[in-house]
Computed example of a mutant assay.
Amino acid sequence: MVLCEYKPGLEGIPAAESGISFVDGQKGILEYRGIRIEELAQHSNFLETAYLLIWGELPTQDELKAFEQEVRSHRRIKYRIRDMMKSFPESGHPMDALQASAAALGLFYSRRDLHNPVYIRDAVVRLLATIPTMVAAFQLMRKGNDPVKPNDDLDYAANFLYMLTEKEPDPLAARIMDVCLILHAEHTMNASTFSARVTASTLTDPYAVVASAVGTLGGPLHGGANEEVIQMLEEIGSVANVRPYVDSCLERKAKIMGFGHRVYKVKDPRATILQKLAEELFAKFGQDKYYDIAQEMEVVVAEKLAHKGIYPNVDFYSGLVYRKLGIPTDLFTPIFAIARVAGWLAHWKEQLEENRIFRPTQVYKGVHDVSYIPVAKR
């Protein structure tokens, strides 16, 4: 017997009560703990935003200083994890390397003391601190180079860019990287966050929670979309080809990467901020020819699909920002993961507060009362 209407993808069905973030898709509003994303992008930094998401309020000056110092002192990874990563195939995707490494981290801290606030804080600090180190380390090791040690004189985003290049980044580049992390830190009950909460509900350790979420984020319909946007822009090649490309997609009913969102029916507010960041980078470091293509695409897609509420989402401009920062395309989604760890951990902590294991039902479509046939008669 069907107890309720089946909704593919659980569309519109609440999976949890949460006080972490809020989206109004009709008005283009995104809030973290009630604070608009535009305010956080302008005034906050990533670790302060992470603290806000995880502990529910902005830290005092002393609390933020202590938190930043804790994260700074835990950036280094175990040599055994580093040795394990060296054995990964060079052709492997960085998201797969990150998922394996995050899971392996749990081997060293497998004690599950989920009612102990010290254990929870230590896990939060360790995951926030080491995930960027793992991403940067794999990027260098797959080229045959040793990883770069963290620079304790640099803040969170600047240190990540330093570990990729062993060069201190330009202050504008570091600030823009930090804002990108803020923008990607949390977004209600998306696929990877739902994965994190389902895993958390079993009362496993937080490293398994993050590893499961990383695996979910890697798909092209979720975090992997920003990679495909760049591939799409490269395929289009010129502004003149934009309209024929869009027309072809519509005729084939093919998805146009970077456009449309399950929640937003207006332009994603994060896309608006990212577009401004891209323009700041281009003004200082030179234009990207694909930006003109992207702008034309936004015009053409709006002309043809705005009546359906299809506008640029967060993935559309993020790749252009990362390209200008010199980041390889297949690191775009791992950077998304670096940021989203904050949101996943916030949901992990919230899930523990009133936990009940997820056990949804299903609509059975199979047959009944089938007789077994011995193998000799098949």
Rank of each mutant, 00 (worst) to 15 (best):
V242R: 06
Y6G: 15
D62Q: 13
L203P: 01
A104Q: 07
K167E: 15
A103Q: 14
N159W: 10
G56A: 06
E11C: 12
E17L: 14
Y372G: 00
Q42L: 07
E353W: 04
M134W: 09
Q42I: 00
E31M: 10
G12F: 03
A339Q: 09
A240R: 14
V363I: 13
E280Q: 14
I131T: 13
L183I: 02
V242G: 09
E296I: 04
H222T: 12
F160M: 03
F259V: 05
K304Y: 08
K267P: 05
R356G: 11
F88A: 04
L154C: 00
F22P: 02
K253V: 11
K78W: 14
Y51L: 08
S318F: 06
W55R: 03
R197P: 03
T202K: 08
S110Y: 02
S195T: 15
G224H: 08
P59V: 01
P334F: 03
T329D: 10
H368W: 15
A271H: 05
N151L: 05
L40R: 02
N145L: 15
Y290W: 14
Q61M: 10
M297H: 04
A129P: 03
W55K: 05
I357Y: 06
G9F: 12
P244H: 09
G25P: 08
P220F: 09
L128K: 00
Y291L: 15
A240L: 11
E39G: 02
L203I: 01
L105I: 07
L274D: 00
P14A: 03
S248P: 01
T49K: 00
A306M: 12
F336Q: 05
D62Y: 10
V71N: 01
V118R: 05
H368N: 14
A185D: 05
D62P: 03
A104P: 01
D292V: 15
D155K: 08
N45E: 12
K289N: 12
R243M: 09
P14W: 07
E296A: 11
K27Q: 10
L352P: 07
G28E: 02
I20M: 06
R323I: 10
L352W: 00
P150H: 06
Q99E: 13
E296M: 14
K255V: 15
V209T: 07
T60Q: 12
R359L: 11
N190S: 12
I335Q: 00
P169M: 07
D178C: 01
E353P: 01
V23M: 11
D292F: 13
L10F: 14
R76M: 12
L107M: 15
D24L: 13
Y119A: 10
V266P: 04
D292C: 09
Q287V: 07
D369F: 12
R262V: 10
F259Y: 10
A196Q: 02
I81P: 00
L250I: 11
Y291S: 13
D113Y: 04
T272F: 06
E70L: 09
H307I: 10
M177W: 02
Y79M: 13
D330H: 15
D152N: 07
